[in-house]
Nucleic acid binder design. Sequence first.
DNA 1: CATTAGT
DNA 2: ACTAATG
Length: 554
Amino acid sequence: MHAYLRRLCAPSPVPIRLLSPFPRSSHRGYFSSVRLLEEMRADAPVKIKIAYRRIITSLPRLSLKSRTKASLLAEWDLEVARVRAWSARVDSSLLERWTAKKMCLPSVTAFAVEQEGAPKSTTARQESTPSKGAGVATALTTRLQGEVDHLHPSNSRQRLLQPSKRLFSTSHSNIIEGRKQALTERIAADAVVDLQQVMADLRDLELLEKLHKTTVKAAAGFKDASRCLYPLWHDVDQGKKSKVTFAELQEALPPIYSVPWTHIAERLTSGTNSKLSTLSEKDKAALLLLRVYNIGSSRSEAFVAAGARTLEDLEPLARRKKISLVRAHKIGLRHFDDIERLIPRSEMMAFDAALRGALRKADPLLECELLGSFRRQASFSSDVDLVVRHKSFVNKDDEEAAASLMRRIVEVLEGENLLDDENRLMFGPKKYAGLARLPGNKHYRRIDIRLAPYHSYPYLLLGCSGDALLMKLLRHAAKKRGLCLNEYGLGEKYTADDQNPNGFKPGTLRVVKDEREIFDLLGFPYLTPKERDYAVWRPRYERAGVDLSHVHKL
DNA sequence: CATTAGT
DNA sequence: ACTAATG
């Protein structure tokens, strides 16, 4: 197997490095095939896997629908062949011409390849895989034309090969600034924006990444952008605002969100989104189903294959035993809208008070707190993240103690009408997931309840407050030091032989009194909860000299 | 066991 | 990166 992969990844006959004759700083957004091919040459099988992920996520290509394990190798083969064919067309004379023109903008470069590249290899490719070859070319052209349009709205396609001054900007921020300016020139500040549509686009683009199981990073970008716009949308939803202008949109979403901005720009100028509107009916249906709780990429595709196209199709299909719908799916369908809606901070505070009050009244020894984005001071949260501890639950493996404590807690909250057993999504000893509603409120909200083994509390605070990327970073750092960090503690990595349920060797657990000590143990500058958002900690850690070079692939 | 969800 | 619950 490894030999097979290695054969595929033998050094390319073309000196790929030549593709990037520009200084490092100038090609941040630069065509990732270079990196990809460099990684393909590396020996480690793990790297090859990463390279594979990169290939299928970063090259302009048709969306590959089936991601079954069996088809992976075939896809791999095809993609490698495609990259080879593409790179083989980049000869040194062409490269020199680009260099002379200072065409360092990657997408333009790629566009030029498509225009000037030998038609022979394109035809050859189309012969072997007719639908795919044609699709790739179309997708590439559409995407790049879209991008260039935003940089240079007035340019026709022919002029792209002799780009004007503004295309020569070499830094990423200049490019972004250029885009922003081009947009400002095209759209009036007081133009009314269909925010509902923009939000739907961002949501679907995020889901598309999820459906195709590509990088979480790309999906995160759309999610973050959507979060930036949510306060605006909420005001409209609440009737506090009748319309949103382009100026307000620009104010709310910073230009660093370059990819989301590209899509928004297309929507605002052309009224459509080419990436979404060209999806097949099946893919569109799969995107819709993905929005149901407990339907992920796998079930979504399976349900579509069974004939589902709308949410209403699911129940009949389940009755005819074509698919199986479990509890959580039915709840997810019943509360489809509520589960997607974010919770304003004011309501989170009300939940905090109500939950604390109910638990304290039942047993003064119950200690609880809301974590997640609420603890990071977010103005909107996607769910209520409650963590509870009690001296009756000390050892994380004492399932009996946990289960009886959890039953008590759920009983209390159901007694207060905050929870109800109808809307139970998950009910294990250490974790409950379901829907909660404040008395008099019309919306149900997603709630997670976690039990903390009494002395693990600082670790649980850290682990459950996030954000997700920070957790990955800290755990990765622990791993590199031969340690293992989880929400129960930090200890020496456990060598799998002996089956001890703990993540670390017995007796090596570092006992801490607060979160700060955990940062200290790992040698990271302390972050207050509010500082644990990627947009905040990334630059802060960068300045402190923390090695973040690998963060992008966490 | 794979799938989903969570930070 | 690492964990919990489900079916």
